[in-house]
Design a protein around this nucleic acid. Structure first.
Lengths: 137, 137
DNA sequence: ATAACTGCAAATCTTTTGCTTACAG
DNA sequence: CTGTAAGCAAAAGATTTGCAGTTAT
């Protein structure tokens, strides 16, 4: 089961995970998937993500890596980027020290506009701008 | 409606929000609450939180403040602490620059052990073994 | 026999939607 | 009128639970 998550190229939600798992064990049930997810979560083997609820309220899962990364969710194209930063690690340390809070899991999710979509938007504005400029939203 | 969220001393989930709103407008319905939440979210007036799903899968809401803060959720006592750090702001800037990702909302949630619970755990360990060391408070 | 795991079905919880009425512009 | 907002009821989506049958210890 954790293999399924590991093998996945993208973040899986429970239903997709169920479908994927069925390819290996056709008889597998929803309940088993959820129970296993819960187990893996408690064991700290996987992380649970929300990905800014771009696709509804479901959760997504990924195998926990040594280095946490931030998920950047583009509101326009829905793509999820991952971003690692030393600053993030430092921030966690700071929380440990300044708030005296022992960090076990840290999740940072960001929503906004990815570079591709930003460029497209800029390009579009440019086209329209030929005829008429200056409409501040 | 946003007043209800503003007045709240703690983070509210939709059901609690509904109850609170009913005190002002008894006829109010779930649907209205959810529709309003959705509106306020889109207007960027409130932020949606998960608080590490300490209490199930519901979402919590708080009025958006100028300065984002990080939510620290204690797995032991369930308390939610807020933590602001310049480092967090810098991290967002870094995302803007290095990933060329235009950040609109950033959410960071941390799960772990708060200082109080950590002290209690230490105290317990101390009892089992040797004498306690001085603890800060 | 015991304990852990699984499938199946039903239940629960949270959020969304369709329809209808009320009301303001 | 016409479009927006609200109530109500039902639906939908995601996750959990109770129960019973299997399998390994």
């Amino acid at each position: 089961m954790i293999e399924v998550i590991q093998d996945a190229r993208k973040h899986l939600d429970a239903v997709t995970l169920l479908t994927a798992a069925k390819e290996r064990v056709p008889s597998i049930d929803r309940a088993t998937v959820y129970r296993t997810i819960d187990l893996l979560k408690r064991l700290g083997l996987i992380d649970e993500l929300d990905l800014m609820h771009l696709e509804g309220e479901k959760h997504f899962y990924e195998v926990k890596s040594r280095k946490d990364h931030i998920h950047l969710a583009c509101f326009h194209c829905g793509r999820i980027e991952e971003f690692s930063a030393p600053l993030f690690e430092r921030l966690k340390q700071e929380i440990n020290q300044e708030a005296r809070f022992r960090v076990r899991v840290a999740r940072m999710e960001v929503g906004g506009t990815c570079s591709t979509c930003a460029e497209q938007a800029t390009a579009l504005e440019g086209e329209k701008g030929k005829s008429r400029a200056a409409s501040s939203s």
